[in-house]
Design a protein around this nucleic acid. Structure first.
Lengths: 197, 197
DNA sequence: TCTTTTTGTTGATTTCAATCAATTCTGATT
DNA sequence: AATCAGAATTGATTGAAATCAACAAAAAGA
């Protein structure tokens, strides 16, 4: 809870009264590792603050394979955003990767807070700007050449590579390449199929 | 100008006083077609409202080729968002594609408005949510199989295909494929290289 | 510790889209 | 209408990454 207040206060001072309300409206949810939190087709009716743990947001392809779009860890805000904003069925799924502690707020509660505490919209605006920036970054990541993606990842998201919280094959997925390709590039093998004499 | 007020009012009522300020602080800028508005490396110090025209936001690769990330037309808000929010150099470029009328607001002016009119943060929050949703959509577009991308484009952005405002080769670029590939898929040719007996 | 499972590496092969190139089509301009 | 430039189509070829497959290494369980 303290971490959430810190996050929000970092953007704009939170009225004490609002802190009290949040304290009561955000019950703690603990989920075991590998638990589905949101399925494709569902409407995302909440936003979550990750107090502890690790989750992935991913897209499920027809053939059952999945494409990871985000990894989110403690300190992050999670949800299927478009679905939440627009009330449309989500095309993204959410699933824990480690045991995770969440603080969820439901849409009507949040909207009520926006109304009651106009200033809270400042926090929300800035938070949304932050996540928009991340989204733009990720879009660019998909565009740049393969080799650069790996470098950018190391530069921008070192935590993903540390402590083996995230397996290599999921990292590969995240940057849109095959596990084997990532391995080859890591080890400077590139592709040698048939070497040019 | 009327269109901008309509956009903002659609999210949350605009105080008249704020309308007056906006009226004075957003001089009209008219740019000819194919004019660079923002180059890579520059910090984006403004947000623009497109009153008329068409622009592209794109990423320039080392080899000089470009990858279009967004097409924006009348009624849209434009800028290199992360650069604007964080004050960092933009990796994206902006360029007009048709003669374009813009209403730009500079960062300090906007921030001043956020401060003076707290309620304006509601408009901004909702606007940011809208653009975040678009960004999420575009991210998903890059992930789904090729053929689906074309369908999604037709379903979600029919205007891009109408009136040949946007050439096919740029559309192809936008969905991350080659012009020839788009043509083949459109005409149901797929790839027949050497047919299996 | 030994077994089992999961993950990572790497060679061989395949595949699908990019590239190259020629041709047609379109639309603008004189 | 004739010319010309840019855009779209389409066949042939190439190529980079996916896939397949075998194995090694690491992690998890017994």
């Amino acid at each position: 809870m303290e971490e959430l207040f810190q996050l929000l206060n970092g953007y704009h001072p939170l009225p004490v009264e609002l802190q009290v309300v949040l304290m009561n409206q955000l019950p703690k949810e603990i989920h075991r590792a590998n638990k589905p939190i949101l399925d494709a087709g569902q409407v995302c009716e909440w936003l979550g603050f990750v107090e502890k743990g690790l989750l992935k947001i991913y897209y499920e392809l027809e053939d059952g394979t999945e494409k990871v779009v985000w990894f989110l860890k403690e300190g992050d805000v999670i949800g299927s955003m478009k679905s939440f904003y627009k009330g449309t069925p989500s095309r993204l799924c959410i699933r824990t990767m480690e045991e995770t502690t969440l603080r969820k707020i439901r849409k009507p509660d949040l909207y009520h807070l926006y109304q009651k505490f106009t200033e809270f919209n400042v926090n929300a605006r800035l938070l949304t700007e932050e996540y928009y920036s991340r989204c733009e970054d990720h879009l660019i990541l998909q565009i740049i050449p393969l080799e650069e993606r790996i470098k950018v990842l190391e530069a921008d998201h070192p935590w993903m590579l540390k402590d083996s919280r995230i397996k290599d094959y999921m990292i590969a997925d995240y940057i849109g390449i095959h596990r084997s390709t990532l391995s080859r590039y890591r080890n400077g093998k590139k592709y040698r199929g048939r070497e040019k004499s």
